[in-house]
Design a protein around this nucleic acid. Structure first.
Lengths: 210, 210, 210, 210
DNA sequence: TATGAATGAGGCTTCATTCAT
DNA sequence: GATGAATGAAGCCTCATTCAT
């Protein structure tokens, strides 16, 4: 028995349109830029009156917040799906998990390069508050990374004494590089190669082993 | 004896004001954002009439181009100063050079966090063309990195068979991470720690050495 | 049964406002001059916001084009109403037709002297393109005149060997003189006298008949 | 012995530059239009600083006044040169004089079509006051015409009872037509043909003589 | 509930004019 | 006297937002 509040037909339709508006705004912002996009552009993509927009969202600033939230959720969702945090206890396990995460990210990036574009190119320029949200997200990702690293150090398969916080930020930067790369070079194969290089650096560094 | 083309007093003053306008615009864009900054804001910072602005720059788009150029030059200048490309032939030499480069970057970032803010937060959101300029700059940095890596592979102090192009991009991402980190956490000490972590990952990876 | 495409109430109101804007612009341009008139002036005459103007016309240049078009149509409409081209075959018939045309013109000019003012004073100074439109209109009128003259020469009631093209231009000039005269001296009676003088010169010249 | 106040070398140079500024302004106004021409444009044509302009003329409105005055004087000068008002006492004499006047006008118009352009296209659109000046000039020309006609009626070689005032305006219009024609079709030969047609209408009308 | 007509704050840009050098 | 750097009034236009239908 479902205990969720049943949505009336009307409510379902409203929610659906709301989602469509977010999607249309995402497309418009990613393609033309936030500042160059008008509310009318978004409405026109859906064939609705632009007055209708204001029945679903407060204002332009409101929609971009939802668009960015949806974009972040898309990424987070993909990652947590492939992800059992703390479920690995060996170097190989961690490496395999890293590959899975990288693949999941590559999938998002290559299937829709507007995702990294929105997050890296458009969102930070919206206004200082939004820039902070994006930076917060980066920090959050770094925190998550750091947790993995701590786990690895504790378990002994990562270097003892590793500066987990800053190393996490460094690794985070490589992931960001992959995202940015996907904006301009969206092929899956290429993204895989880049992932491999990232994981190579991450685990082994670039020095010739002696 | 100076052989430089002597600038008249007038020309010197014009060049000076031009530079001041670029600086004021840099400040305004970094602090309030490009789109939230009006020409009048820039002029007001200098106590000049806003009409004067248009004697020095074509329009708002023109000034941001110059601001970004100046910002990029600031970075490039700092790097090339510390930089003898291809002048190292050992792992330790490369590592030391990497430290010097990292220090130079840290110096820029911590001495003026508006530099990374302008490049990473504001510039990409100006318009698609500017976003491309920034992405071009990232690509250029990656190309430079790749050249270093190639040199190291040839000389034998870096891992044979290294995917230099993609590895360069990965390393580039870590540098970007440092830049972004500097936006929010501008202390020199912290930046040094982050640099150390980056160089640690870069050369040795995170795996426990056997 | 009306077969005309039924305009919705909304469409009718829009078309009506559009017409009112053209009228207000006509008034403003005729009274203050095109360059001295601001969009805000036009809007203020109608008690609408100046933003509303831009819902109906592209820009200032657009509205003056429509104003001039409407002005030309007003003249052309009045003339073609009184006008059966080629329907006369005698000198007296042509003279009578000329009188009718002159009366129609006099009616327009005296009922609204802003019509000649717009066409002769304001429009040419808008920009070179508009000046060309006005000159084109004069040329068109001359062409029409020439057709009448040709007809008369063929039918034999006008002088054989008449240089119809240039004579048409000369007559055109007399009509223009009437228009200009109407700008400053708009009385109907006066306009009639001028028309009579024009037709006198046109048909008989000024020489004492022998 | 000259009793005219001798101009110092300096004063002569000033007067010369003054004339050059008027000429340059004439060119600029005729070619680009009054409103589209900036003071800087005029100064640039002469290679002088635009601040210098204000040492010779009060403001932009001032210079166009002088330009129009010079233009009118150019016409009046050419006409009065060929012109002995009241010196003819026969129809043929008047006709010959009319031809001479027409030739003089044709000479001005074809040698510099910017003259009619300035007077008919540009000047009226400057502002209402300038429009009045132009209309005044037309009226003056009509008055002059009327004087000739009166003389002819008195002497008996023009039609008795002629409405000299309005007929003068009609003839004036034909002259205006020639001026306008010269704007677009500046050939001397063509202008001569048009003059002939005008004089033909003026003296004989278009009716077939019985 | 959906619409789009109306609005006007806001921002960019031009250019005639001034005035210190 | 000549210059051109500086100025800011003025005007065009956009577009987010409101609200009557």
């Amino acid at each position: 028995m479902s205990v969720e509040p049943a949505l009336s037909r009307n409510e379902r339709k409203k929610a659906e349109l709301r989602r469509e508006i977010i999607d249309a705004a995402f497309e418009a912002f990613a393609e033309r830029g936030y500042h160059a996009t008008g509310i009318a552009d978004i409405a026109a993509r859906l064939g609705i009156g632009h007055g209708t927009f204001y029945r679903y969202f407060e204002n332009k600033r409101d929609i971009v917040d939802h668009v960015v939230s949806a974009t972040i959720e898309r990424i987070v969702g993909a990652l947590t799906a492939e992800n059992a945090p703390g479920a690995v206890d060996t170097l190989e396990g961690y490496r395999a998990q890293s590959v899975r995460i990288a693949d999941a990210l590559a999938e998002i990036i290559t299937s829709d390069p507007r995702v990294p574009r929105m997050l890296v190119i458009e969102a930070p320029g919206v206004d200082p508050e939004m820039a902070n949200r994006v930076l917060d997200f980066f920090d959050l990702a770094a925190d998550l990374n750091a947790a993995y690293l701590s786990h690895g150090v504790e378990r002994g398969y990562l270097r003892p004494g590793l500066d987990v916080v800053n190393t996490a930020r460094a690794i985070n930067g490589m992931i960001l590089a992959a995202a940015i790369d996907g904006i301009r070079r969206p092929g899956v194969d290429h993204q895989r190669e880049l992932s491999a290089a990232i994981i190579g650096v991450m685990f082994d560094g670039i020095s010739r082993s002696m």
